[in-house]
Design a protein around this nucleic acid. Structure first.
Lengths: 344, 344
DNA sequence: AGTTTTTTGAGGTGCGTACCTCAAAAACTT
DNA sequence: AAGTTTTTGAGGTACGCACCTCAAAAAACT
């Protein structure tokens, strides 16, 4: 039988009320008594029944996901996963709010964040670039007792509780190894496409990529990143240009969005399947591209895990319960046609 | 506010007792009344609060993991993951029993399974080869109302509720693509090592492997499987032999256990790093081998996910609650040095 | 010593559900 | 219509915990 609060009281020789005061940090207990209760807890191995506690507390975890309003495929799958998690969590007294902000407006974002405590939100998962304004906003949230996790894109210099996402530098290294080994031996060139080299993820992926390419595949020449600014037309132009000047491109590494634009451009040029193509994030289009052979490898993070991990971590932080770090580590998944999962 | 049982009663115009009878499949309710209650439930969108239900039920999910007593690394990490899940689930009123059976004795296994209902077990995760005796044992468990999931190794012709594990044929295909593309172009030969070609997993992996090798890499010759029977000495001998006869082995695919024996054998022969080496299951030794370059790729399933998925599915089956199939799909993970996770 | 302040105890209620009992009502029998 | 069976209702207790009140005890002050 699991020990209960009553067992603590008996073991510590105090009343239930005192145990309750200690357990819930209520004032009016002498330090000595607190210690006695905590000793008793340790002795009998009491673990709070979180389910019962939340039931009694009438607690509905009010959590918020704050995401940019970009209309990328990745964002869409993220929203899908969130909706799914939301449906599932109808059973777990969790209420998930979604807040979207204009991607280029850090002040609007700060406003949204500032409004969360007033809305009764006790935990926030945030996907946003790090700016001074955001740093302050996060500090404020933490001071008001909210749990804050960074999602997908880390906010390392803020007071966020946790980061839910992958090590993008390692992802870039993995990309380099795969392209390097898939290319036939001998000199060749690799094209790198990115939305903008200002984004933290792009920079980190590129760093990891170059690291391995220089160290392990010196015969491969990596061209400077071509920036697409998320626009299909720009991508089409720069890729066409680049291939015109250097037709011997053996590999294409697409750091960010634009997979669809890339594969259609290659198809236009009749070059599908000619180079090793590696991209990030397993979107529906990436799935199709893997199946058709238009792409060779996708490096991805499981969006469902991402969302569920964020939810678990937030709940754990709010309950002040430790969590299993190794379970919350998001894997860098390598996906080829052969290990493509059935869904998502 | 979430609707409760009381809301159902009001909405359906019946008493709480009747609602309770319907919700918990208790007898003594007219079909018409059952329908009225279910309509009310649908109308107000009631979802049972599983936490409160379990609290009231005083239910401790008594689950059993039934595993072979083999002392392989995979088994050991599985046990570790189980222990970890067990510690975590101290909070979730779940009691996990572990039963191990002599790997070669299906009757002992049947005995263990038969004893579970008497021990109050309501759910079983089973990792065992499929035999007629086991099929019967599983049918009996199901008839007694236990939930049964197959773990790692499927039992497709039994009445198990669910299979928690990967598609090994797809894993074999992925192995073939990786070895095929990592090898330099042109003819070469691949050695395949397996414990015994009688195990379902080995057969399926080999099937998938051959499928891709024949179709996509016809210039690569795949040698017949060398059986090691899980013994390091045997492996050492057959590998040494094989390499003596065909020194031009470009790739080695190790279907089952024996990674350590293989890498030490290769080291002995001074051939470390000469061929592309791919194995299954990310054991501590496989980690080390990836880091040192003694192995190139590992195809694995996340053992932590495996265990947690089995637990979630069992709980869902017992609660008669639907579960998110896509969440419970175990991924075929491709691991190279660069995306090696920090832990496990 | 008496007085004030702090600490503790005893007891209660409610969260949403399960499960029980007993009597009343309704639906079938013959 | 009277009896029998089935169905329903009203009410209670319990689960483990949070949170509340009020009085009693203990400790800290004059």
């Amino acid at each position: 039988m699991r020990p209960t609060v009553n067992d603590i009281a008996r073991e510590a020789g105090v009343s239930l009320a005192t145990v309750d005061r200690v357990l819930n940090d209520r004032p009016g207990v002498r330090a000595k008594t607190v210690q006695a209760v905590q000793d008793a807890i340790a002795r009998i191995g009491y673990v709070r029944d979180v389910a019962a506690a939340n039931l009694a507390r009438q607690r509905d975890y009010r959590l918020a996901f704050v995401l940019p309003d970009t209309d990328s495929q990745f964002n869409r799958t993220l929203l899908d996963a969130l909706a799914e998690a939301h449906r599932q969590s109808a059973m777990a007294r969790t209420d998930v709010l979604l807040r979207r902000f204009a991607a280029e407006d850090p002040h609007a974002l700060a406003g949204i964040l500032a409004a969360l405590p007033g809305a009764g939100v006790v935990g926030v998962a945030l996907m946003a670039p790090e700016t001074p304004v955001i740093r302050d906003a996060i500090r404020n949230l933490r001071q008001k007792g909210l749990a804050v996790v960074a999602l997908v894109s880390d906010l390392p210099n803020t007071e966020r509780d946790h980061f839910v996402g992958i090590d993008n530098r390692a992802a870039g290294r993995a990309a380099a190894v795969l392209i390097g080994r898939f290319l036939r031996p001998g000199p060749s060139r690799v094209m790198v496409l990115s939305d903008s080299m200002l984004l933290r993820e792009s920079i980190e992926r590129r760093l990891g990529f170059d690291e391995v390419m220089q160290g392990r595949f010196p015969q491969i020449e990596v061209l400077p990143s071509l920036e697409t600014h998320g626009q299909a037309a720009v991508l089409h132009r720069v890729v066409t240009d680049c291939l015109a000047h250097s037709p011997d491109i053996g590999g294409i590494y697409i750091l960010g969005t634009g997979q669809r634009a890339l594969t259609t451009t290659l198809q236009h040029l009749g070059l599908t399947g000619r180079s090793v193509v590696l991209g990030h994030e397993l979107t529906p289009h990436a799935r199709a591209a893997l199946l058709s052979g238009a792409m060779d490898v996708v490096i991805t993070q499981n969006v469902g895990h991402l969302v569920r991990s964020a939810l678990r971590v937030l709940r754990a932080k709010i309950d002040r319960v430790p969590f299993d770090l190794s379970q919350e580590q998001i894997r860098i998944e390598i996906v080829i046609r052969e290990n493509l999962p059935d869904s998502l």
